[in-house]
Design a protein around this nucleic acid. Structure first.
Lengths: 145, 145
DNA sequence: CTAGCTGCAAAAGATTTGCATGTCC
DNA sequence: GGACATGCAAATCTTTTGCAGCTAG
């Protein structure tokens, strides 16, 4: 496992303890897998890939666990145009590229945007906590097909 | 009806004819309502509000019609973290503010962002057709509660 | 007239929930 | 030990689909 993932996992265990969440094998596995995955899996995909390691893991536990993680800000629900929700380990300052053909979601960084101030008019609306860019298009693989 | 909406409606009728879509009373009402609404309603909300005017209108027609409109680029499906999908009349260059408490979605403009070029790294990914900002926070009404 | 829509009802897909049992702290 | 989490099954909620009748062009 990469260092980044180890750190995420430790931070996760600390966050669980702080939030009064029990560290069960299921939760650890689900989080670990999500931290290592880079493809924003759905609950179903996650379950499918984890039942090998953990044959008794049920799909509803995956749903429940992801819900709990999202509530506690450990995991983010990624917006898509598909019917199934997708998830990723919560991290600030990253944005999404979505291929409209293969539905793949890729993360990217954009410092310039992160530093930019929202327009004046938004200030009157309320308090903004975070802002994200979602860009839609066609990935290079799908373009060449 | 405001001029903007009249124009949208005329553009809609033209677009339907061009696309070979029939102009049925249901389609006209659904589009008209969506053009006038500013709150990004879900299919269910739309149906609920239209059955008064059109008592025979069925929910599945609303779903089917919105699907057809989205396919033809007349309407956009708005991504949310809620379970129900929400819709709006398609328009370029606008972004969303989402209140995490009351779930209200507000449009805003941001010329500076629209003009900004995506970072270099994105170019290697493929061809981007559009980019949107989604900002999350708490609206002024919910802040004062 | 007739291809394309609509409404109805039923199905499918995604997610949630009640409950009994098991397990982390 | 006791509160919390899990697994199972059933329920719920959202969206889709098959089909027969209707209607815009």
């Amino acid at each position: 496992m990469e260092d980044t993932h180890k750190q995420q996992l430790t931070a996760f265990e600390d966050a669980c303890r702080k939030a009064g969440l029990r560290l069960t094998p299921q939760r650890i596995e689900i989080f670990r897998y999500l931290a290592e995955a880079s493809d924003h899996p759905s609950a179903e995909t996650l379950h499918l890939r984890l039942v090998d390691k953990m044959p008794t893991l049920s799909l509803d536990t995956v749903y429940r666990t992801l819900g709990t993680f999202v509530e506690h800000g450990l995991v983010s629900k990624v917006q898509t145009v598909e019917s199934q929700a997708r998830f990723e380990v919560a991290q600030l300052l990253h944005h999404h590229l979505i291929c409209q053909k293969c539905k793949e979601i890729i993360d990217f960084q954009w410092q310039f945007f992160d530093d930019a101030a929202l327009p004046e008019t938004v200030r009157a609306w309320g308090r903004v906590e975070r802002k994200n860019v979602v860009a839609y298009g066609t990935c290079i693989d799908c373009l060449s097909k």
